[in-house]
């Protein structure tokens, strides 16, 4: 196991979080996509760092895949989808939680994840102890983004953040369990994105809007 400057770890973790806050704090779809792209690039870098630290060469493949799929393909697909959608406003006009509050709550969630992770015995693994709280924070913030937004697109972005958190989490804790499972997870997520894109199409066609607030026909009253 190679050693590495703790600063690099900390700084990369901070950039990851900042990129995530970019999604929370902005209201335009393209801004989110850019933030996501940035996040993915940093994630790929982090993956590389983990690969370097653990010395497992498979992780470099994962890093490359991350770089390609997450920072190139998925943003492309989503841009393509949004272009095809004949919807005028591609921004979050009326979120359930105002952006200011959202940022504060996200900050709380970051604190919460650090608080929770303290419980886990990490055997003083610097990589794990740096990135694990960040990954949980990503996960929780992603979830919060989905909860607080009413545009279907932002929910997809939220899913993507969650998924990034997951990726980082599994990576840090397992150091790449086995390629097979890692691939399986990748494939699942990719298919998920494809399916949600199809659904986005259908929603915009059927409801003439990407506002999730319109999807309230199925309820009990």
């Amino acid at each position: 196991m190679e050693t590495i400057q703790p600063d690099i770890l900390t700084i990369s973790a901070a950039i990851l979080l900042i990129a995530t806050f970019g999604v929370v704090a902005r209201r335009g779809f393209l801004d989110w996509l850019n933030a996501y792209r940035l996040q993915s690039v940093v994630l790929a870098g982090v993956t590389g760092i983990v690969g370097y630290v653990t010395g497992i060469w498979e992780i470099y493949i994962a890093a490359a895949l991350t770089l390609v799929i997450k920072s190139v393909i998925i943003p492309k697909v989503l841009t393509y989808v949004t272009r095809r959608l004949e919807i005028e406003f591609k921004m979050e006009t009326n979120p359930y939680v105002s952006l200011r509050t959202a940022v504060i709550i996200s900050a709380f969630l970051v604190a919460l994840s650090y608080f929770l992770i303290q419980q886990i015995p990490l055997k003083s693994d610097p990589v794990a102890s740096t990135y694990l709280p960040v990954s949980v924070a990503l996960f929780l913030i992603g979830l919060f983004v989905i909860v607080s937004r009413r545009a279907a697109l932002s929910q997809v972005v939220g899913l993507l953040i969650i998924e990034n958190g997951l990726f980082l989490f599994t990576l840090v804790l397992t150091h790449g369990v086995s390629l097979l499972i890692e691939m399986g997870i990748f494939a699942d997520i990719l298919v998920g994105i494809v399916i949600s894109s199809i659904l986005l199409f259908r929603i915009s066609q059927t409801f003439d809007s990407l506002d999730i607030g319109k999807l309230e026909n199925l309820r009990d009253d």
């Binding site: 989905i146 929910q155 899913l159 998924e163 397992t174 997870i185 659904l199 259908r202 929603i203």
Partner: peptide, 24 residues
Amino acid sequence: IEAAWKYLIIATVGLSFALIGTTF
């Protein structure tokens, strides 16, 4: 479509918890 969307989002989010648990 509405049901599918909700199902997709909720189940995916939910199952990601399960992945974290499994990893733990």
